[in-house]
Design a protein around this nucleic acid. Structure first.
Length: 279
DNA sequence: CTCCAGGTTGTGT
DNA sequence: ACACAACATGGA
């Protein structure tokens, strides 16, 4: 019946709550493209795909016509118990890990992550979310919902149109950035070391050290990076017993934390960010 | 009115 | 290499 109209069938799959806390995962700042309908019902958008999440007693029901994509998206294969047990060997991490124990790092769409985190610079989450919603609504394809604009669609957007959706002074950077992105073959990035990719990213308009690290973590799923923003600065001062006379730069904080958490830095960052922001 | 928000950039030393 | 003001915008 549905096939006649070339509509993919909506599938439902379940995720045990041991595996993930969807509320924590969506609200910890890594993703801007979701909506909370009721306390137990969320809609998540990624690129041109959509999933609806229903919280039940002991599991979540995920309804989507891209179930394969979202099974990967929620990062269900990674052994977070192992990661958390390793991290809490550091006493400082015990509370943050306990507080955000259901957080998973989502495997998001690369272009969406890049554009989203350029919007995030010197901005607040409420405004970022609103701007990105308007971006999808005004420039994304509609197929029951508004998809994130493709690179081709993004490259049609003018500086003024970016200003209209609240991008502010980032509008110039975004237009430049998108032009640069169209000339990049990201498939070769997979084989590069993290520092190499970061250097390439930092050459792009609107991308500095922190946004580059976010792209690494949320777009490339590299966990040997540590995005240091205002909240990590606060967490660092509050939780780590460092000399108070010295004022630590973000570069120094990043280096200190990566040396401490190594290839688990990205996970540690999410726990600390979430703890500092929401506790 | 001033300060802040998941910072980056250009310019100065 | 590091420091620092300027940069839109809406909310507190």
């Amino acid at each position: 019946m549905l096939e006649k109209f070339n509509v993919k069938k909506i599938e439902i799959f379940k995720i045990n709550k041991e595996k993930i806390n969807v509320v924590q995962t969506l609200k910890c700042g890594q993703i801007f493209s979701y909506r909370q309908i009721t306390p137990k019902n969320f809609v998540v958008f990624s690129a041109d795909k959509k999933a609806e999440v229903f919280e039940k007693e002991k599991h979540y029901e995920i309804a989507s016509n891209n179930s394969v994509y979202f099974k990967n998206f929620f990062d269900l294969e990674t052994d977070y118990e192992k990661i958390k047990n390793e991290l809490i060997k550091d006493e400082i991490m015990i509370e943050p890990v306990k507080f955000g124990s259901g957080i998973r790092i989502l495997k998001q769409n690369l272009i969406e992550v890049i554009i989203s985190f350029v919007f995030s610079a010197n901005n607040n989450i409420k405004r970022i979310t609103e701007s990105l919603f308007l971006l999808r609504k005004k420039f994304g394809s509609f197929n029951g919902f508004f998809a994130f604009p493709t690179l081709t669609q993004l490259s049609q957007i003018s500086e003024n149109e970016f200003k209209e959706i609240g991008a502010g002074y980032r509008s110039v950077q975004l237009v430049k950035l998108i032009r640069q992105l169209t000339k990049i073959d990201f498939s070769v990035f997979e084989n590069l070391g993290s520092e190499e990719i970061i250097n390439k990213l930092k050459n792009l308009s609107g991308i500095g050290s922190k946004v580059a690290d976010c792209i690494m973590l949320f777009g490339f799923n590299r966990t040997d990076v540590f995005p240091v923003d205002i909240w990590i600065e606060k967490a660092f001062v509050n939780l780590f017993k460092v000399k108070k006379e010295k004022t630590w730069s973000r570069v120094e904080i990043r280096k200190f934390l990566i040396k401490r958490y190594k290839n688990l830095s990205g996970y540690a960052q999410q726990y600390l960010f979430n703890y500092q922001r929401n506790f």
